[in-house]
Amino acid sequence: MPAPFQWLLDPWQSAIVGPGAAVTVVVGASAAAIGCWVLLRDLPYAAESLSHGMFPGLVAASLLGIPIAIGGIAGLAVAAAAITAARRWVSPDNHSVAVAITPLLGLGAILALSGPVPPGVGDALFGDVLAADTTDLLTALVLTPVLLVLLRTAHWRLLASGVRSSDSSRMDTLVICLLVVATAMAAGSLGALLAVALIIGPASAAERMALRASTMLWLAAGIAALSAVVGIEVAWHAGIAAGPTIAICAIIPAAASALLLPKQITT
C-alpha cells in the first residue's frame, strides 16, 4: 500500500482491535443475513426487544450461582418462547412483543431486589466490541456455518410462506429462533445496541438494492461486514467509541438507500 494510505492500516496493527473486528465482521454478517428475514417478516420489534428479555435470565443465574452466560441464553429462550406464545394466543401483531417482554422486565427488576445480585448484572447487555476475545471469535466461527446451513435449508420455505402466506406463524417462529441464536452471539460479544443495528440496518439497505431474496441476504451480510471495518477505521481515527460508531455505519446505508432508491422486494 502506498505511503499516503498507510494510515488506513493503523487500526489493524493494534492487538486490541483485531479480535473484536473479526468477531464483528463474522457475527455481523450472519446477523445481517438473518435480519433480512426479520425485516421481510416484519419482526423488528422482536429483534429489538429480545435482548432485553435476557435480563431476568441474567438475574436468576446470578441468584442461583450458575454462570451468567447460561442465564442469558436461558433468558433469551424464555423471551423467545413468550413472544411466540403471545403471537399465537394474544395477537399475531407486533404489540404481542410488548405483552411478552414488559412482564419479563418487571420480573427481572423484582428478582434483582430479592437477593444478593451483583450490581450491574444488566451491563452484560452492554458488551463491547473491544472486549471480544478469541473465545467469542471461535463461538462465532462455529455458530456461523450452523446458521448458514439453517438459512439455506429454510430459504425456499421462508420465501414460499411469504408468497402464499400459509404456515406463516411457523415461519415466524423459525425466524425468531434464528434471531435468538444471532442475539446470543451478537449481544454477548458486541452489546445489545450494536446487535440490533447490525440486524436491522444492513438488511434494510439491502432490501432496496436487491431484486431477489438471496441477493438481499448476501448484500446485507456484505454491508454489515463493510460497516464493521469502516466503523472501526472511523472510530480509530476520530478517537471515538467503537461500538456506537459501527452501529451508525450500519444504519447509514439504510438511510441513504431510503432516500435514494425505490423499494425492490415486496414480500
Binding site: L39, D42, L43, P44, Y45, A47, E48, N94, L193, V196, A197, I200, G201, S204, P244, T245, A247, I248, I251, A254, A255
Partner: peptide, 14 residues
C-alpha cells in the same frame, strides 16, 4: 417497524 427500529437504533448509537 423497520423505520422505527432504524431511528431508535440511530438515536441510541448517537
Amino acid at each position: 417497524g423497520t423505520r422505527t427500529a432504524l431511528w431508535l437504533t440511530g438515536a441510541m448509537a448517537v
